[in-house]
């Protein structure tokens, strides 16, 4: 124990310190495996990311240094959008595990909706999301422009979603009968969740829109976090066309709904 009350880890033998770190990691993961109520899991991760001390490792096993002194503000604090993502990415490259936690907590909804917008079922979408984050981990040092992280995530998720769909088709011959079953099971939410007929009709019309419209509408729902510019780049669309294209998709949706009996 030092004069200021903290443990002097450098006084411990290297191997023992490494083992303690591993046990601490395993304990944290075991705690985080316990299901949390809606919204609490992500909030807890973000709160932990702000409050918890960065890891201190002196084992020599780590190739990257822990960059942040105990109690120092995290480099992404107070930042938003691409600046925040870039700061997290740089910190993660330098070995700050909390930075990666923040990215996963904040951007997993985006990755999820890209996968779902590419006609991937819920179960397969979970696998796609995990695969994309593991791919980011492998490519941490190779992303040339950290501010373009959101675009990289969208592009990588779309590719992985396409790969997942191809794999799914290879396992399951797509007869007309199977296709109808998939549509109802994979896309429509549980009936009990649809409290009103208008919601049910709207959702049914939404899932019949062209895939590109569904993807664009899902992505722009998250526009508070995902800038139109990143969406445009990832979808290979001119930046000024996102708004008009979205408007056309909404008009198509409206036209379909107005043709439905009982809509008005």
């Amino acid at each position: 124990m030092t004069a200021n009350g903290s443990h002097d880890r450098s006084a411990e033998p290297g191997d023992l310190t490494g083992r303690l770190d591993e046990l601490r990691d395993a304990l944290r993961e075991a705690i985080q495996e316990e299901p949390a109520p809606d919204g609490v899991g992500v909030a807890a991760i973000l709160a932990e990311a702000r409050a918890e001390d960065p890891p201190s490792r002196t084992t020599g096993r780590r190739t990257r240094p822990a960059p942040v002194a105990t109690g120092a503000p995290r480099p992404w604090e107070g930042l938003i959008g691409p600046d925040r993502h870039a700061a997290c990415l740089r910190a993660a490259r330098d070995g700050d595990r909390r930075a990666l936690d923040v990215l996963v907590a904040e951007l997993t909804p985006l990755v999820w909706h890209v996968a779902r917008g590419n006609s991937v079922g819920k179960e397969a979408a979970e696998d796609v999301v995990q695969t994309v984050w593991l791919a980011l981990l492998r490519h941490l040092d190779r992303l040339v422009e950290p501010r373009a992280l959101v675009g990289w995530l969208i592009t990588t998720t779309r590719r992985e979603a396409q790969r997942s769909r191809r794999a799914g088709r290879a396992q399951l011959p797509l007869s007309q009968e199977v296709a109808e079953q998939l549509t109802s099971e994979e896309w429509l939410p549980e009936p009990q969740a649809l409290m009103e007929d208008r919601d049910r009709m709207l959702w049914a019309a939404f899932v019949q829109l062209p895939q590109r419209c569904q993807e664009l509408l899902r992505l722009t729902v998250l526009a508070g976090r995902v800038e139109y510019r990143s969406v445009a780049d990832a979808l290979n669309m001119p930046r000024g066309s996102i708004g008009p294209t979205r408007g056309r998709c909404l008009r198509t949706l409206r036209d379909r709904l107005e043709g439905e009996e009982g809509w008005r």
């Binding site: 993961e29 495996e33 899991g41 999820w112 999301v129 995990q130 981990l137 919601d199 959702w203 509408l217």
Partner: peptide, 27 residues
């Protein structure tokens, strides 16, 4: 329509609560 669709996408098709934990564990 715009607002209703936003609400439906967010309310009816959110990522599963445990997904973030699952990803963090794997990472």
């Amino acid at each position: 329509l715009d607002r209703a669709l936003d609400r439906l996408v967010l309310e009816l098709d959110p990522p599963p609560t445990a997904l973030v934990d699952r990803v963090l564990f794997a990472v």
